[in-house]
Simulated assay, not measured.
Amino acid sequence: MGVLQAYSKQSSGSVKLRSLIDTLRARPEVVREEPPIPRHFTHLSAEQTKALAEDYRAGMRVKELAAKYGISRETISKHLRRHGIAPRKVGLDAQQIKEAVRLYEQGDSLATIGKRMGVTAHTVRSRLIEAGVKMRSSYEHLLSDTRDRKV
């Protein structure tokens, strides 16, 4: 032990740490070989790709197609582009927006309408605002229920 070590104030923790570092440096390198990332590629035949395009044109959603064909949504989109099919606009079509307006004005919540139409409450809210619907406060329905009960 050197003079510096003998007269310096080292905590027992730092001494243990130094000893551990020296021990690790003395050990030979341990090389860990990582297992390869499992990759599962599903290749679609020309017939399957054609059927996929027909299913999309018939109204199936990309998420549904991905589950049906066992491939990612991105791959579905690539196949559709190769067939010259433009992606549908995400959200609600004009008829669904009219129905959403009607339901909202009847008192249904955004979440209820969204669940019924397969979209998020945020999407419903955005389309209603675009349609010029005045949004009610989050507690307004509670006030109207209370007034209705008193009458």
Results as ranks from 00 to 15, higher is better:
E140N: 01
M60L: 13
D148G: 07
S126G: 09
K9E: 15
K89N: 10
D148N: 14
D93P: 05
V119I: 11
Q48H: 10
Q5Y: 13
E105Q: 08
V151K: 10
E47S: 12
Q96A: 12
I129E: 09
V15H: 04
K68C: 04
T146P: 03
K115Q: 06
Q48N: 12
S138D: 11
R81L: 05
G91A: 08
P28C: 01
Y104N: 03
V15N: 08
L142M: 12
H79Q: 00
V3P: 03
A100L: 08
R61A: 12
Q96D: 04
R102E: 14
E54R: 04
T42H: 11
I71Y: 04
L65N: 05
A6C: 11
R82Y: 12
S8I: 09
S45A: 10
L65G: 06
Y139R: 15
S109Y: 01
A94G: 02
A6S: 14
A46E: 15
A58V: 02
S11E: 07
K89S: 13
G118V: 04
E99C: 00
A131T: 11
T112R: 14
E130S: 13
T49A: 15
H83G: 04
L143Q: 15
V124L: 00
V90S: 12
E29N: 01
Q10H: 12
S12P: 04
A66S: 15
L128R: 04
Q10K: 11
A53E: 08
R147C: 07
R57I: 10
L128M: 07
Y7N: 09
T146K: 14
K134I: 09
R136E: 10
D108C: 05
V62N: 09
K9T: 13
D22V: 07
R125V: 02
I113F: 00
G2R: 11
R61P: 00
D93E: 10
K68G: 02
M117E: 02
G84H: 08
L80K: 07
V101C: 05
G59R: 03
A111H: 01
H83E: 12
L143C: 11
I85Y: 02
H40V: 07
K115L: 03
S137Y: 05
V151W: 05
R102K: 14
S45K: 05
R81M: 01
R27D: 14
Y139G: 10
M135I: 13
M135Y: 06
T120I: 06
